[in-house]
Design a protein around this nucleic acid. Structure first.
Length: 894
RNA sequence: GCGCGCUUAGCUCAGUGGUAGAGCACAUCCUUCACACGGAUGGGGUCGCAGGUUCGAACCCUGCAGCGCGCACCA
């Protein structure tokens, strides 16, 4: 044991214990267990994902909760898995195929392409799972799920079929958010509004019945004017009342279009006249519907202009066409001005290009169980932390729009709908298949294909990835129609840990799905993590290169160091600013813990010297004090866990070990471990060390699972073949006797030592070991402790002398142990000492004034609680005493 | 425009009415036999601004400013 390296080396230790836990099946959940169940489902990371700091924070929190629950005697299921991530994965594999083999997905065809994606998934898909294991995550890996597992996929289809049968799912042609790169529709949530510096073009259209007269129109999108089917003004706008009902000339392709009046038009904006392009703008579409306007689609799905009537624009990309259209307007003398203009443009969440509002045939879901889901959070059945997110949730629930669930992708759950082949062909493809054109015999909606499959064509679209994710809490626990023990035991889940950015994408939808398909709420608590930013406050991103690789951090500082460091800075409310220094602190802390244990092992080379039960009533004050503080720590942690204050838990654990256990207790008991110490003293000290440390390691274990397991094993705190992580946390406090007197003594010694060291430093005696102290009027018990005090202070000798008379100018301090002098026999610089004393007196006079001011205030004395007044009076007395003493010292020097 | 949050030491953050805190950074001292990934000591803050409530405000209320986020609109 004495050959232990001085610094803790986490890498090998962490790998060793993770393997041991896996071998010991420590993470596997038994649904037949008699214990109470505790469960978390992991927010499934994208199967293409690579671990980033957000994952680390999120999963470390889940691991802490899971490990803590095990210690409290729960049967724990932490259910892991990955998400097939439709667009992200398809895009990734497509890009790779294009780069490496020069083929697109359409070259391969649907079946072959899907085969390639599956191959890719098998080969590269598990990276993030391995990374989570490196972090120490105690997931039940025997239950790992994937959203496209056969059983899971069956759930997705079944849910679609059920909702369809209830009339909540329908197909129709509507305005959707279209991504011209991914060539698919997106839900509203997948559109990111982004501020843009754009240009506002003002142009004029000539009135058809009055050549030479114009109406001015402002637009940011001149490239869509070929799709204009009207110009709209506000009916209340006096400038335009005479125009309403007349026709204007659309410049190209030339056409006469009407001027209509619609409330939607803002009088203040631009010229007050708005060009209406029903095919390419949501608001225009609505206006078009109200006025029965023609819908003229002038864009291809990939964002190129489709307008054979304008050959010079036809086929151009929308942004190229914009410039060209402007040039054309200018050439025609219709462009009046171009202004810089800041507006918001919707961008595709995945492809990072402006989305295009587009009318297309899609599947839509009217959300089920909305009221129940809203109520569950409002009435506290599901508790959000921090609570303020409940408001965001409520707001969204009140403004639900139908969910566009179809995606024009191949990777995903294909929509379980078949159309009769003859009908499908007659209507010339899916784009034209309106529900109204279909009779019951034309369409088959079911988990399985119709029996006479050859006569049917399957809907090509897949479902939004979130349409599978929202089933995660129960579809991972049971198969369709199965009476699952796992579900019985572990549903609803206990806690969900996720980011507030997916409240709508995921959390809200899971709640609705829980009510609709699993008979109740899916979880009881939702803990929202914070966003991790860099020190400049920017979000972590690959392109900024400000996102450290957690694997690198773990190699450098250990998984425990990373976990602990991150937990210490994770605040309850606002965002985290990440600094590698905090991980370094975590590593340093692990090292401190390791060395505290190493110290004990070195002091007791044979081991086993201390296994005798502790007789607490005979323990010295420091021992009882640390035992009492450990109990206080355990109680404090209990409270903090109850409030999900993870940073506070880390802080409490840190302070106990570093400030209390190492800085105070270990320093105070060093004499007991020297060769000169009695066997009894040694045994008592080692016994106390072991009692406190073994339980401390247990309390620490959820945060730093590897090092605590290692140390517990090495120190013999857990038996061969047992694991710390599986041991139940004792409910009873460690302390069995009244320790209040002992604690008061220990506190007095520590405090006195601090003041005496302070005195040494003030007189530049810093490292001198020969300094003597004299304590006057010391309590009788101090005689036994003066050696400890001398050690703590770094003093040559501590003399207890009630009759001591200090020579003039002897430095002194008031300590809880009495007047304390540091005789230096002429070593003091008298002038410097006078300056110091004068400054000190000034400072204290100020304090006295503050106290007197308060006590002199009649209202304070009458109305403040009595104990506060007493406290204040005592303080004033203290200051006065101090002042008098300093005054005497100063007088002695002159 | 509506809503939510934040503003405390150089930095990152605790602090729910009673003497302003931690870690890091900084300065001085110490390689003393657990740990220099360490120990000791110290300097550093009119708690964003202005009002109000209160005997007393970092904390409660109002207003303002700055920053961030969400929702809606944006021709």
């Amino acid at each position: 044991m004495s050959e232990l390296p001085k610094a803790y080396e986490p890498q090998a230790v962490e790998a060793k214990w993770y393997a041991a836990w896996m071998d010991g099946k420590c993470f596997e959940a038994d649904p037949k267990s008699a214990k109470d169940g505790y469960s978390i489902v992991i927010p499934p990371p994208n199967v293409t994902g690579i671990l980033h700091l957000g994952h680390v924070l999120n999963n470390a929190l889940q691991d802490i909760l899971a490990r803590r629950a095990r210690q409290q005697g729960k049967e724990v299921l932490w259910l892991p898995g990955t998400d097939h991530a439709g667009i992200a994965t398809q895009t990734k594999v497509e890009r790779q195929l294009r780069d490496e083999q020069g083929v697109g997905r359409r070259d391969l065809g649907r079946d072959e392409f899907l085969k390639r994606v599956w191959e890719w998934k098998e080969k590269h898909g598990g990276i993030i799972i391995q990374q989570l294991k490196r972090l120490g995550c105690s997931c039940d890996w025997s239950r790992e799920r994937f959203t496209m597992d056969a059983a899971y996929s069956k759930w997705v289809s079944q849910v679609f079929v059920d909702l369809f049968k209830q009339g909540l799912i329908h197909r129709g042609k509507r305005m959707v958010n279209w991504c011209p790169v991914s060539l698919t529709a997106l839900s509203d949530e997948e559109v990111i509004m982004t501020p843009q510096r754009s240009k506002l073009y003002t142009m004029k259209y000539e009135l058809a019945d009055a050549p030479g007269e114009y109406i001015e129109i402002a637009t940011t999108r001149p490239e869509t004017l070929m799709g204009d089917s009207a110009v709209a003004v506000n009916p209340k706008d006096p400038r335009y009342t005479k125009h309403v009902g007349r026709m204007v000339k659309r410049p190209f392709p030339p056409a006469d279009i009407p001027i209509i009046a619609d409330e939607h038009v803002d009088l203040e904006f631009g010229t007050g006249a708005l060009k209406i392009t029903p095919a390419h703008d949501k608001a225009d579409f609505d206006i078009g519907m109200r006025h029965g306007l023609e819908i003229i689609d002038v864009l291809h799905p990939d964002g190129r202009v489709h307008c054979p009537a304008c050959p010079e624009l036809d086929g151009l990309d929308r942004f190229v066409a914009r410039k060209k259209a402007v040039a054309k307007l200018e050439a025609m003398g219709l462009l009046l001005k171009v202004e810089e203009y800041d507006n918001n443009v919707g961008f595709s969440e995945r492809a990072h290009v402006p989305i295009e509002p587009r009318i297309s045939m899609q599947w839509f879901l009217k959300y089920p169980c909305v009221q129940q889901a809203a109520d569950a959070v409002a009435n506290g059945d599901i508790k959000f932390r921090p609570e303020r997110w409940a408001k965001t949730y409520a707001h969204w629930m009140e403004n639900l729009q139908d969910w566009c669930i179809s995606r024009q992708l191949w990777w995903g759950h294909q929509i379980p709908v078949w159309y009769r082949k003859d009908k499908f062909e007659a209507l010339r493809g899916a784009e034209a298949l309106d529900m109204h054109d279909l009779t019951a015999g034309d369409i088959h909606v079911g988990v399985d294909a119709p029996a006479d499959g050859a006569n049917w064509v399957r809907d090509e679209d897949v479902m939004d990835t979130w349409f599978s994710s929202w089933l995660w809490p129960f579809a991972t626990m049971t198969e369709v129609g199965e009476a699952s023990q796992t579900l019985q035991k572990f549903y609803p889940t206990s806690d969900l840990v996720t980011g507030p950015d997916i409240i709508f994408f995921w959390v809200a939808r899971m709640i609705m799905a829980g009510f609709q398909f699993a008979g109740g709420l899916p979880f009881k608590n939702v803990y929202f993590t914070t966003i991790i930013r860099d020190l400049q406050g920017r979000k972590m991103s690959k392109s900024l290169g400000n996102s450290p690789d957690p694997i690198d951090l773990m190699e450098k500082y250990g998984a425990d160091g990373l976990r602990f460091g991150l937990m210490r800075i994770a605040p309850v409310g606002s965002d985290v600013r990440f600094d590698e220094a905090s991980v370094e602190e975590g590593r340093n802390f692990a090292n401190k813990l390791y060395n505290a244990c190493r110290f004990r092992q070195m002091a007791d080379e044979g081991g086993e010297a201390s296994r005798a039960p502790l007789t607490q009533d005979k323990l010295p004050p420091y021992h009882l004090d640390i035992i009492a503080k450990l109990d206080a720590l355990a109680a404090g942690l209990e409270e903090s866990y109850g409030e999900y204050r993870f940073g506070e838990i880390a802080q409490r654990l840190y302070e106990f070990l570093w400030s209390e256990f190492c800085d105070k207790f270990l320093e105070a008991v060093k004499l007991d471990l020297r060769d000169s110490a009695t066997a009894d003293a040694r045994a008592a000290t080692l016994g106390t060390f072991d009692a406190v440390m073994s339980r401390y390691l247990q309390l620490m274990s959820p945060y730093m699972p590897h090092i605590t397991e290692e140390l517990s094993a090495r120190m013999g705190y857990v038996g061969e073949g047992e694991f710390l992580m599986q041991q139940q946390l004792p409910a009873a406090p460690l302390l069995t006797v009244d320790a209040s007197a002992a604690q008061a003594r220990a506190a007095a010694v520590y405090e006195a030592a601090s003041r005496m060291r302070n005195l040494k430093a003030e007189y530049k005696m810093g490292s001198r070991k020969d300094v003597r102290f004299v304590i006057k009027s010391a309590p009788a018990w101090l005689a036994e402790e003066s050696k400890v005090l001398a050690l703590l202070v770094g003093a040559g000798e501590i003399i207890l002398d009630g009759a001591y008379v200090a020579t003039k100018g002897t430095p002194a301090a008031v300590t809880p142990l009495g007047e304390t002098y540091m005789p230096l026999e002429g070593l003091i610089d008298v002038a410097a000492e006078r300056v110091r004393l004068t400054k000190e007196i000034e400072r204290i006079e100020l304090e006295v004034k503050k106290c007197q001011g308060k006590l002199g205030n009649a209202s304070f004395v009458e109305r403040a609680p009595p104990e506060v007044v007493v406290q204040e009076t005592a303080r004033l007395a203290d200051w006065h005493a101090k002042l008098q003493q300093l005054g005497e010292m100063l007088a002695a020097l002159t």
